[in-house]
Design a protein around this nucleic acid. Structure first.
Lengths: 124, 124
DNA sequence: TCGATATTTCTATAATTCTCGAATCATGCA
DNA sequence: TGCATGATTCGAGAATTATAGAAATATCGA
């Protein structure tokens, strides 16, 4: 991943509303969710939400597809994983051992979670 | 890690110059580097660099300590690891298996690197 | 002490980002 | 076709962030 690509993704996530939208879509999983639901759940004006979705979309973090009269946005998990790999690589160039142990702990927590779980217990 | 904390960290990294500064400091490792060197290496005006270092510092990503006439900035690796854990947790709530395999690959690459290496071969 | 160097803070300006009402564009249904 | 609904785009104003010269602060060495 190029540096400027990483900047775009980081900027997309570096906003309270956008991070909330993104996390909401993460929770929704591959099935995704519609702008209407998101706006209602997060208390955002439709045009404001659309602005933020465009940012996330431009960063490649979410994609949308039309479904009847609705749009369905969903997270591109590979893109998020790509950012994490980029950050991990940054970290490991400085202090690999410390980062390794931290990340392994985080991953261990995730590994315990069922793949399509709707509960929040996995990663407290 | 709280959401607004994550937003602060993401925002601190979501700028070309700041990400460059941060990565330069990562390369420097625990020994750190001075604003003078950073400004020279990255071609930034001293006041501009100072502005960005303040942002990174405010996000807790870097710390500084005085050394003679110089200041030495260095990365707080635990803070970066904290952000990565936060993102990993987000990822694993949606599609654990995919994220797991990606992260494990990234970590495997890092594990092969010597802890205080100055070469760039570890994480291409 | 004086001068040189390192760094930050101040200040002003420029640029970007954010918000949201209004207008616009589709789609599906009666 | 006409209407209601879902979503985006447009436009204007507000707020935030970025840049960099100038001034201020601090430390070292001569």
């Amino acid at each position: 991943m190029q540096t400027n690509e990483a900047v775009t993704i980081l900027a997309a996530l570096a906003h309270e509303s956008r991070l909330a939208v993104f996390r909401h879509l993460v929770e929704a999983g591959p099935a995704g969710d519609t702008p209407g639901n998101l706006a209602g759940a997060l208390g955002l004006a439709p045009s404001t939400l659309s602005f933020h979705l465009k940012e996330l979309s431009h960063a490649g973090l979410v994609t949308s597809k039309a479904s009847a009269r609705y749009l369905v946005y969903s997270v591109d998990f590979a893109r998020l994983a790509g950012l994490m790999t980029f950050l991990t690589q940054s970290c490991c160039r400085g202090m690999p051992s410390e980062c390794l142990s931290t990340m392994e702990t985080a991953l261990a927590g995730c590994a315990a979670a069922p793949a399509t779980s709707t509960e929040k217990a996995c990663c407290p």
